[in-house]
């Protein structure tokens, strides 16, 4: 009888792309839960909406490309992109924004560049930037964290706001803090205060801050950090990029803070505000758009960290991860070209 022939190796680890993506999604859940706890049902609605749009777009594109729809949907990559967009945008942003952003991410950023594995830019961040530059007002309108808010939106109110039905619900009422002031994100607040001549210490006394970090945001970041550590443990991601990002941000912000503590945010505030932990473990670690060699990935991560610090401090936008990630994406091929590991048996030069 004829026997089956195949090229070696004949065994594989059986850790497939879909499994890796699945693990990443699962590790996002703690952060998502905490985010919902502080900012209401809106985030969950956005995530579900994004997933729906992402899967539809993925299926439609696969159909157009004459590829197998099931294989593509089952790799979970579209779903991961959708969840990342969902958690990144303001919880009560109107529905058409997330639809537009997600469709842009899947159709244009991912598939027009060749699909999974071929896209140059991180789809979630590209979508975020598109929305941010197109609709800056909506994209920077965060509601007050539930612990310091006058009113927190219920599920129905969230849905009404997102889908723009029911005239009596007003976005502004959920932005009022217990002090009766409209609340922005901690980073935004600090940035505005510093530009108005206040010192960091003065700004930190505001209700949005909890001594040294932003109310709610600290816990959200902590939850993403925990999820990220589990990811590391599961070896779904490697430590290089995350460490690079956190170290880069920490070192840059420490230097800045030591030089002028009065008009700079502390490293702690940088590390536990905004999207820091989410980006460090779930966004920057997207392998497709990152550098490939271990050393290259550390450099890639550190670049993001430093860029985030610069944009947060000097840029016009309060948070900077989307821009920093996209800029680092641009640099990834360059990093790959120049940072190659020394092959066994080759001299160092």
């Amino acid at each position: 009888m004829a026997f089956k022939i195949a090229s070696s190796p004949h065994v594989t680890r059986n850790l497939h792309t879909s499994t890796v993506m699945q693990r990443v999604i699962l590790c996002l859940l703690p952060g998502l839960v905490v985010q919902c706890a502080f900012f209401g049902w809106g985030t969950l609605v956005q995530v579900l909406l994004a997933i729906l749009v992402a899967l539809s777009c993925e299926a439609a594109v696969m159909k157009l490309r004459n590829r197998d729809i099931k294989t593509s949907l089952s790799d979970n990559s579209a779903m991961l992109t959708a969840i990342l967009i969902g958690v990144a945008i303001p919880p009560l942003a109107p529905w058409w924004m997330i639809v537009m952003g997600t469709a842009f991410a899947i159709v244009i950023v991912k598939h027009l560049y060749g699909g999974l594995g071929h896209n140059l830019f991180n789809p979630a961040m590209a979508a975020y930037v598109l929305l941010l530059v197109s609709f800056p007002v909506q994209m920077t309108t965060w509601i007050a964290p539930s612990t310091v808010a006058l009113h927190s939106p219920s599920l129905v109110e969230s849905l009404q706001l997102i889908f723009n039905v029911g005239a009596h619900v007003n976005m502004e009422q959920f932005r009022l803090g217990i002090d009766g002031m409209t609340m922005a994100t901690p980073l935004d607040t600090l940035k505005t205060d510093l530009s108005m001549g206040l010192t960091t210490t003065e700004s930190l006394t505001k209700a949005i801050f909890d001594g040294s970090t932003g109310v709610g945001w600290f816990w959200v970041n902590l939850a993403y950090l925990a999820g990220g550590l589990v990811l590391l443990k599961l070896k779904a991601i490697r430590w290089h990029i995350s460490t690079g990002v956190l170290l880069g941000l920490f070192v840059a912000s420490s230097i800045g803070f030591l030089l002028s503590p009065d008009n700079q945010a502390s490293p702690l505030l940088h590390l536990f505000s905004g999207a820091t932990m989410l980006a460090a473990f779930f966004i920057a670690t997207d392998p497709v758009t990152a550098a490939t060699s271990p050393r290259g990935r550390i450099i890639f991560g550190a670049l993001i960290g430093v860029l985030v610090y610069i944009i947060r401090t000097k840029g016009g936008y309060p948070d900077a991860f989307a821009f920093a990630v996209l800029l680092a994406n641009l640099c990834a091929p360059f990093i790959d070209y120049y940072v190659r590991p020394r092959t066994y048996g080759h001299s160092t030069n």
């Binding site: 294989t71 999974l116 490697r238 190659r340 092959t343």
Partner: peptide, 19 residues
């Protein structure tokens, strides 16, 4: 065979330090 997602696992596993 599916698309390479450039995860870099291969580079981590390579005993010859190739990419």
């Amino acid at each position: 065979e599916k698309a390479c997602i450039r995860c870099g696992e291969c580079a981590t596993a390579c005993p010859a330090l190739l990419l």
